[in-house]
Write a protein that binds this DNA or RNA. Structure first.
Lengths: 141, 141
DNA sequence: ACGCCATTGCAACTTTGTTGCAAAATATTT
DNA sequence: AAATATTTTGCAACAAAGTTGCAATGGCGT
């Protein structure tokens, strides 16, 4: 199965040992396509993996540059797959994120890039997040 | 004292009864000038007010359009004073926010406005947040 | 197949956020 | 200015989210 193969490859590429939890959680991300919060993952695979394992797996994925965090105002940080250019400790995301107020789905809108921001003297940017919230195309009547 | 007066005025303007907790917490915001997380407020005034009161006060202020939330990736939503144009349930913030990775201070950078984003078909924006993180001008050596 | 090292699950705990209700404070009326 | 109505607060109890240490398990290299 192609998807499964590429998941193992992804883990190996980032020097991670291949475990059930990591394969499972990583495949959740590629299946969903959108961003996931810790709670989403826990609900989907709660029977299989301990809460602590999910926390640690997400943390590891962020450190290794497999997923990145998306800021939110509702105390539920979301995670999404990084693009290929991301390496450990060096995230490059120039796409914006859209959070639907209705269904809660978080989209990575790849078509739109974040404009370059000119900061005041002495401020140095390491990461820029552009989060748009509103109603998504599925929830629109 | 002028500051104290304008704080009371602000509360009255938004149809809120004037209480110690509200005066105190609101003055924390105008004194600091920057954004504050719940934890910041709790540390500063924990002896004075119950945790629950702080939660409810922040919630009330957001609803009334006195403060607004700033998304974050570290599970600590920050709050900052709204500009005058904000009314209840109708926040208009076109400035960006800068979170310093080093000292944790969150700045409202008023000089820079958030560019208008053209979303894909069917997506409707209600709020746009641009959060830049990195090193602030105080932490820069 | 063996042994080492990384990962997992469990338990216990801390922190963060929520809810109901009685007491206290604020606002309103007279 | 006092009495009443209304809102807000603090407490207690709880629920949810996140963390840490440690023994047991499983992955990986030889």
């Amino acid at each position: 199965m192609h998807t499964q193969l590429s998941i193992i490859d992804t883990l190996k590429k980032h020097n991670l040992s291949v475990t059930d939890a990591r394969k499972n959680i990583l495949s959740l991300f590629s299946q969903s396509g959108n961003a996931l919060a810790h709670a989403d993952i826990e609900q989907t695979s709660s029977a299989e993996f301990d809460r602590v394992t999910i926390y640690r797996t997400l943390q590891t994925f962020v450190e290794k540059g497999i997923i990145h965090t998306i800021p939110s105002s509702d105390n539920s940080v979301r995670y999404a797959l990084c693009k290929d250019e991301c390496a450990a400790g060096n995230h490059h995301h120039n796409h914006i994120h859209f959070i639907c107020d209705n269904c809660g789905i978080t989209y990575c809108i790849d078509q739109i890039t974040v404009p370059k921001i000119q900061l005041p003297q002495g401020f140095k940017a390491s990461q820029t997040d552009l989060i748009v919230s509103g109603t998504c195309n599925k929830c629109e009547q």
